[in-house]
Computed example of a mutant assay.
Amino acid sequence: MESITKNRQSLDALKSMIERAYGPGRVPVGDDIADELGHGWFNVAYRVRLADGAEVVLKIAPPADVEVMSYEHEMMRNELTALALVQEHTGVPVPRIDFADTTRTLCDADWFTMPYIDADNFGVLLESGRVAPDESDLLHEQLGAVTRELNSVIGPHFGPLRGPGFATWREAFTGMIGDVLRDGERADVDLGRSYAELREVVAAHADALDEVVEPRFVEWDLWPGNTMVRDGRIVAIIDHERALWGDPLIEGGFTGIDLAAFGDPSAFLRGYGRDAADLTETERRRRRLYTLYLVLVMIVETRYRGHAEPWQYDWSRARLDELMPLFG
Protein backbone atom coordinates (compact mmCIF):
# COMPACT_ATOMS: atom_id res chain seq x y z
CA MET A 1 0.00 0.00 0.00
CA GLU A 2 1.40 3.38 -1.04
CA SER A 3 1.29 6.15 1.58
CA ILE A 4 3.07 9.44 2.26
CA THR A 5 3.70 8.18 5.81
CA LYS A 6 6.22 5.62 4.55
CA ASN A 7 9.63 6.93 5.58
CA ARG A 8 11.89 5.42 2.92
CA GLN A 9 15.62 5.76 3.54
CA SER A 10 18.74 5.80 1.37
CA LEU A 11 21.03 2.80 1.10
CA ASP A 12 23.68 4.55 3.19
CA ALA A 13 21.15 5.32 5.91
CA LEU A 14 19.96 1.71 5.99
CA LYS A 15 23.56 0.48 6.34
CA SER A 16 24.15 2.93 9.19
CA MET A 17 21.07 1.60 10.97
CA ILE A 18 22.20 -1.99 10.50
CA GLU A 19 25.65 -1.12 11.85
CA ARG A 20 24.13 0.47 14.95
CA ALA A 21 21.81 -2.50 15.51
CA TYR A 22 24.16 -5.40 14.76
CA GLY A 23 27.70 -4.02 14.64
CA PRO A 24 30.01 -3.26 11.69
CA GLY A 25 30.85 -6.91 11.08
CA ARG A 26 27.28 -7.75 10.02
CA VAL A 27 26.68 -4.81 7.67
CA PRO A 28 25.98 -6.22 4.19
CA VAL A 29 28.07 -5.21 1.18
CA GLY A 30 26.70 -4.03 -2.13
CA ASP A 31 23.59 -2.26 -3.35
CA ASP A 32 21.15 -5.18 -3.34
CA ILE A 33 20.82 -5.66 0.42
CA ALA A 34 17.19 -4.77 1.16
CA ASP A 35 13.70 -5.24 -0.24
CA GLU A 36 10.76 -3.14 0.87
CA LEU A 37 7.89 -5.14 2.33
CA GLY A 38 4.81 -3.60 0.78
CA HIS A 39 1.93 -4.94 2.89
CA GLY A 40 1.93 -2.25 5.57
CA TRP A 41 -0.19 0.91 5.34
CA PHE A 42 1.65 3.23 7.74
CA ASN A 43 5.31 2.44 8.49
CA VAL A 44 7.92 1.39 5.97
CA ALA A 45 9.60 -1.99 6.51
CA TYR A 46 12.62 -3.51 4.79
CA ARG A 47 13.74 -7.12 4.58
CA VAL A 48 17.53 -6.93 4.97
CA ARG A 49 20.15 -9.63 4.36
CA LEU A 50 23.03 -9.26 6.82
CA ALA A 51 26.63 -10.04 5.92
CA ASP A 52 26.43 -13.44 7.64
CA GLY A 53 23.31 -14.43 5.68
CA ALA A 54 20.77 -13.82 8.44
CA GLU A 55 17.61 -11.99 7.39
CA VAL A 56 16.03 -9.26 9.51
CA VAL A 57 13.28 -6.67 9.21
CA LEU A 58 14.01 -2.97 9.68
CA LYS A 59 10.85 -1.00 10.47
CA ILE A 60 10.81 2.81 10.39
CA ALA A 61 8.13 5.20 11.67
CA PRO A 62 6.73 8.05 9.49
CA PRO A 63 8.78 11.20 8.81
CA ALA A 64 8.63 13.88 11.49
CA ASP A 65 7.20 16.47 9.10
CA VAL A 66 4.27 14.36 7.86
CA GLU A 67 0.95 15.13 9.55
CA VAL A 68 -0.71 12.04 11.03
CA MET A 69 -3.99 11.42 12.80
CA SER A 70 -4.23 12.23 16.51
CA TYR A 71 -4.00 8.62 17.68
CA GLU A 72 -1.01 7.90 15.44
CA HIS A 73 1.57 9.98 17.29
CA GLU A 74 4.48 7.87 18.62
CA MET A 75 2.80 4.66 17.54
CA MET A 76 6.11 2.83 17.18
CA ARG A 77 6.87 3.39 20.85
CA ASN A 78 3.40 2.06 21.59
CA GLU A 79 4.23 -1.05 19.56
CA LEU A 80 7.42 -1.64 21.54
CA THR A 81 5.39 -1.41 24.75
CA ALA A 82 2.76 -3.79 23.35
CA LEU A 83 5.34 -6.38 22.32
CA ALA A 84 6.90 -6.34 25.78
CA LEU A 85 3.49 -6.84 27.41
CA VAL A 86 2.53 -9.71 25.11
CA GLN A 87 5.84 -11.48 25.64
CA GLU A 88 5.70 -11.04 29.41
CA HIS A 89 2.08 -12.01 30.01
CA THR A 90 1.03 -14.40 27.22
CA GLY A 91 2.24 -17.24 25.06
CA VAL A 92 1.10 -15.54 21.85
CA PRO A 93 3.90 -15.68 19.24
CA VAL A 94 5.19 -12.20 18.40
CA PRO A 95 8.47 -10.94 16.91
CA ARG A 96 11.53 -10.50 19.10
CA ILE A 97 12.98 -6.99 19.03
CA ASP A 98 16.70 -7.12 18.27
CA PHE A 99 17.31 -3.40 18.55
CA ALA A 100 15.21 -0.24 18.94
CA ASP A 101 16.38 3.33 18.40
CA THR A 102 14.27 6.28 19.52
CA THR A 103 17.11 8.83 19.46
CA ARG A 104 16.21 10.04 15.92
CA THR A 105 19.88 10.63 15.12
CA LEU A 106 20.30 8.39 12.07
CA CYS A 107 16.93 9.41 10.62
CA ASP A 108 14.06 11.66 11.64
CA ALA A 109 11.98 8.89 13.22
CA ASP A 110 11.96 5.92 15.58
CA TRP A 111 12.97 2.54 14.15
CA PHE A 112 13.62 -1.01 15.24
CA THR A 113 14.88 -4.33 13.90
CA MET A 114 13.64 -7.87 14.39
CA PRO A 115 14.27 -11.30 12.83
CA TYR A 116 12.54 -11.91 9.50
CA ILE A 117 9.59 -14.30 9.89
CA ASP A 118 9.72 -16.96 7.19
CA ALA A 119 5.98 -17.50 6.83
CA ASP A 120 2.98 -16.48 4.73
CA ASN A 121 0.78 -13.48 5.43
CA PHE A 122 -2.72 -14.83 6.10
CA GLY A 123 -4.37 -11.78 4.54
CA VAL A 124 -2.35 -12.14 1.33
CA LEU A 125 -3.26 -15.83 1.14
CA LEU A 126 -6.95 -14.96 1.42
CA GLU A 127 -6.77 -12.21 -1.20
CA SER A 128 -4.95 -14.44 -3.68
CA GLY A 129 -7.26 -17.42 -3.12
CA ARG A 130 -4.35 -19.62 -2.02
CA VAL A 131 -6.05 -20.95 1.09
CA ALA A 132 -8.87 -23.52 1.08
CA PRO A 133 -12.11 -22.65 2.92
CA ASP A 134 -11.60 -25.32 5.61
CA GLU A 135 -8.04 -24.15 6.26
CA SER A 136 -9.24 -20.55 6.37
CA ASP A 137 -11.81 -21.47 9.02
CA LEU A 138 -9.17 -23.22 11.12
CA LEU A 139 -6.87 -20.20 10.93
CA HIS A 140 -9.70 -17.83 11.82
CA GLU A 141 -10.49 -20.05 14.82
CA GLN A 142 -6.85 -19.83 15.87
CA LEU A 143 -7.01 -16.07 15.46
CA GLY A 144 -10.02 -16.00 17.77
CA ALA A 145 -8.19 -18.05 20.39
CA VAL A 146 -5.10 -15.85 20.12
CA THR A 147 -7.22 -12.72 20.50
CA ARG A 148 -8.88 -14.12 23.63
CA GLU A 149 -5.48 -14.84 25.17
CA LEU A 150 -4.29 -11.31 24.43
CA ASN A 151 -7.47 -9.91 25.97
CA SER A 152 -6.74 -11.80 29.21
CA VAL A 153 -4.10 -9.24 30.20
CA ILE A 154 -5.52 -6.66 32.63
CA GLY A 155 -4.29 -3.09 32.49
CA PRO A 156 -3.90 -0.17 34.93
CA HIS A 157 -6.20 2.26 33.10
CA PHE A 158 -8.26 2.71 29.95
CA GLY A 159 -6.75 4.20 26.80
CA PRO A 160 -3.15 4.33 25.51
CA LEU A 161 -0.81 1.65 26.82
CA ARG A 162 1.82 4.22 27.79
CA GLY A 163 -0.71 6.66 29.22
CA PRO A 164 -2.00 9.07 30.10
CA GLY A 165 -4.98 6.90 30.87
CA PHE A 166 -8.62 7.32 31.81
CA ALA A 167 -10.57 6.03 34.78
CA THR A 168 -13.52 4.94 32.63
CA TRP A 169 -13.92 3.33 29.22
CA ARG A 170 -16.55 5.92 28.31
CA GLU A 171 -13.98 8.70 28.73
CA ALA A 172 -11.35 6.79 26.77
CA PHE A 173 -13.50 5.70 23.85
CA THR A 174 -15.48 8.91 23.39
CA GLY A 175 -12.14 10.70 23.39
CA MET A 176 -10.84 8.33 20.69
CA ILE A 177 -13.80 8.77 18.38
CA GLY A 178 -13.87 12.50 19.11
CA ASP A 179 -10.25 12.76 17.97
CA VAL A 180 -11.06 11.02 14.68
CA LEU A 181 -13.96 13.39 14.02
CA ARG A 182 -11.75 16.40 14.74
CA ASP A 183 -9.08 14.96 12.45
CA GLY A 184 -11.69 14.67 9.72
CA GLU A 185 -12.88 18.23 10.20
CA ARG A 186 -9.31 19.55 10.19
CA ALA A 187 -8.62 17.83 6.86
CA ASP A 188 -12.05 18.74 5.45
CA VAL A 189 -12.99 15.08 4.85
CA ASP A 190 -16.46 14.55 3.39
CA LEU A 191 -18.20 11.80 5.39
CA GLY A 192 -21.46 12.02 3.46
CA ARG A 193 -23.28 13.25 6.56
CA SER A 194 -22.71 15.96 9.11
CA TYR A 195 -20.15 15.70 11.88
CA ALA A 196 -22.83 16.95 14.26
CA GLU A 197 -25.06 13.96 13.42
CA LEU A 198 -22.23 11.53 14.15
CA ARG A 199 -21.48 13.19 17.47
CA GLU A 200 -25.16 12.94 18.37
CA VAL A 201 -25.15 9.19 17.65
CA VAL A 202 -22.10 8.66 19.86
CA ALA A 203 -23.63 10.69 22.69
CA ALA A 204 -26.93 8.80 22.42
CA HIS A 205 -25.24 5.42 22.88
CA ALA A 206 -22.32 6.33 25.13
CA ASP A 207 -24.08 4.92 28.20
CA ALA A 208 -23.50 1.41 26.79
CA LEU A 209 -19.77 1.95 27.40
CA ASP A 210 -20.28 2.21 31.17
CA GLU A 211 -20.72 -1.57 31.42
CA VAL A 212 -16.99 -2.00 30.75
CA VAL A 213 -15.20 -1.60 34.08
CA GLU A 214 -12.00 -3.64 33.65
CA PRO A 215 -9.35 -2.47 31.15
CA ARG A 216 -8.04 -5.31 29.00
CA PHE A 217 -5.23 -5.46 26.47
CA VAL A 218 -6.73 -5.16 23.01
CA GLU A 219 -4.89 -5.16 19.68
CA TRP A 220 -7.80 -3.52 17.77
CA ASP A 221 -5.90 -3.94 14.47
CA LEU A 222 -5.64 -7.74 14.68
CA TRP A 223 -6.86 -9.17 11.38
CA PRO A 224 -5.51 -11.71 8.82
CA GLY A 225 -3.20 -9.11 7.26
CA ASN A 226 -1.29 -8.90 10.57
CA THR A 227 -1.10 -12.66 10.98
CA MET A 228 1.76 -14.86 9.77
CA VAL A 229 1.05 -18.54 9.16
CA ARG A 230 3.01 -21.67 8.28
CA ASP A 231 1.81 -25.26 7.80
CA GLY A 232 -1.72 -24.37 8.89
CA ARG A 233 -0.67 -22.66 12.12
CA ILE A 234 -0.30 -19.07 13.28
CA VAL A 235 3.40 -18.52 13.92
CA ALA A 236 3.42 -14.76 14.60
CA ILE A 237 1.20 -11.73 15.15
CA ILE A 238 2.73 -8.53 13.77
CA ASP A 239 2.02 -4.77 13.80
CA HIS A 240 1.01 -3.97 17.37
CA GLU A 241 1.20 -0.19 17.22
CA ARG A 242 -2.54 0.37 17.74
CA ALA A 243 -2.88 -1.72 20.90
CA LEU A 244 -4.59 -0.11 23.91
CA TRP A 245 -6.32 -0.85 27.21
CA GLY A 246 -10.02 -1.21 26.56
CA ASP A 247 -13.02 -3.43 25.85
CA PRO A 248 -12.20 -6.76 24.12
CA LEU A 249 -15.38 -6.40 22.06
CA ILE A 250 -13.63 -3.68 20.04
CA GLU A 251 -11.32 -6.25 18.43
CA GLY A 252 -11.42 -6.42 14.64
CA GLY A 253 -12.55 -10.04 14.54
CA PHE A 254 -15.97 -9.04 15.91
CA THR A 255 -16.67 -6.42 13.23
CA GLY A 256 -18.47 -8.85 10.92
CA ILE A 257 -21.23 -9.09 13.53
CA ASP A 258 -22.33 -5.62 12.45
CA LEU A 259 -21.47 -5.50 8.75
CA ALA A 260 -21.24 -8.51 6.43
CA ALA A 261 -18.72 -6.68 4.23
CA PHE A 262 -16.07 -7.33 6.90
CA GLY A 263 -16.48 -11.09 6.51
CA ASP A 264 -18.22 -13.93 8.28
CA PRO A 265 -17.07 -13.85 11.93
CA SER A 266 -18.32 -17.35 12.78
CA ALA A 267 -14.96 -19.13 12.82
CA PHE A 268 -13.32 -16.31 14.77
CA LEU A 269 -16.14 -16.38 17.32
CA ARG A 270 -15.80 -20.17 17.75
CA GLY A 271 -12.12 -19.77 18.45
CA TYR A 272 -12.75 -16.90 20.83
CA GLY A 273 -15.53 -18.75 22.64
CA ARG A 274 -18.36 -16.32 21.91
CA ASP A 275 -21.66 -16.64 20.07
CA ALA A 276 -23.06 -13.60 18.31
CA ALA A 277 -26.56 -14.70 19.28
CA ASP A 278 -25.63 -14.38 22.95
CA LEU A 279 -24.59 -10.72 22.79
CA THR A 280 -26.76 -8.54 24.99
CA GLU A 281 -28.45 -5.44 23.58
CA THR A 282 -25.91 -3.28 25.42
CA GLU A 283 -23.04 -5.26 23.90
CA ARG A 284 -24.56 -4.86 20.44
CA ARG A 285 -24.81 -1.13 20.93
CA ARG A 286 -21.15 -0.97 21.98
CA ARG A 287 -20.18 -3.15 19.05
CA ARG A 288 -21.86 -0.75 16.59
CA LEU A 289 -20.00 2.17 18.15
CA TYR A 290 -16.74 0.29 17.63
CA THR A 291 -17.57 -0.40 13.99
CA LEU A 292 -18.42 3.27 13.59
CA TYR A 293 -15.01 4.18 14.99
CA LEU A 294 -13.25 1.77 12.61
CA VAL A 295 -15.11 2.99 9.54
CA LEU A 296 -14.45 6.63 10.42
CA VAL A 297 -10.73 5.90 10.82
CA MET A 298 -10.69 4.14 7.44
CA ILE A 299 -12.36 7.12 5.76
CA VAL A 300 -10.37 9.90 7.41
CA GLU A 301 -6.96 8.22 7.13
CA THR A 302 -7.15 8.25 3.33
CA ARG A 303 -6.59 12.03 3.43
CA TYR A 304 -3.68 11.76 5.86
CA ARG A 305 -2.07 8.93 3.85
CA GLY A 306 -2.35 10.86 0.61
CA HIS A 307 -3.96 7.95 -1.21
CA ALA A 308 -3.99 8.48 -4.97
CA GLU A 309 -6.67 5.85 -5.57
CA PRO A 310 -10.16 6.35 -4.09
CA TRP A 311 -11.09 2.69 -3.50
CA GLN A 312 -10.60 2.69 0.30
CA TYR A 313 -12.46 5.96 0.71
CA ASP A 314 -15.35 4.79 -1.48
CA TRP A 315 -15.54 1.36 0.19
CA SER A 316 -15.49 2.84 3.69
CA ARG A 317 -18.07 5.51 2.85
CA ALA A 318 -20.40 2.71 1.68
CA ARG A 319 -19.87 0.91 5.00
CA LEU A 320 -20.80 4.07 6.92
CA ASP A 321 -24.03 4.31 4.91
CA GLU A 322 -24.83 0.68 5.82
CA LEU A 323 -24.02 1.14 9.49
CA MET A 324 -25.87 4.33 10.39
CA PRO A 325 -29.40 2.89 10.10
CA LEU A 326 -28.47 0.23 12.66
CA PHE A 327 -28.38 2.92 15.34
CA GLY A 328 -32.09 3.56 14.82
Rank of each mutant, 00 (worst) to 15 (best):
8 R>D: 11
18 I>H: 00
19 E>I: 00
30 G>W: 01
39 H>V: 09
43 N>T: 02
47 R>H: 15
48 V>A: 04
50 L>R: 02
51 A>G: 06
62 P>E: 05
69 M>K: 03
72 E>F: 02
82 A>Y: 04
84 A>D: 12
87 Q>H: 14
87 Q>L: 13
95 P>H: 10
96 R>I: 03
101 D>N: 12
108 D>W: 02
116 Y>V: 01
117 I>Y: 00
118 D>K: 12
120 D>A: 13
129 G>I: 05
149 E>F: 08
152 S>P: 05
154 I>V: 15
155 G>R: 05
156 P>N: 07
160 P>S: 04
162 R>M: 05
165 G>L: 02
166 F>W: 03
183 D>C: 02
185 E>W: 01
191 L>V: 10
191 L>P: 03
194 S>Y: 06
194 S>F: 06
198 L>G: 02
199 R>H: 09
200 E>M: 10
201 V>A: 10
202 V>K: 06
209 L>M: 07
212 V>I: 15
213 V>C: 09
213 V>L: 11
215 P>N: 04
215 P>H: 03
241 E>A: 13
258 D>Q: 12
270 R>S: 11
278 D>V: 06
287 R>N: 13
291 T>C: 13
311 W>D: 14
316 S>T: 06
320 L>P: 03
320 L>T: 03
323 L>Q: 03
325 P>H: 06
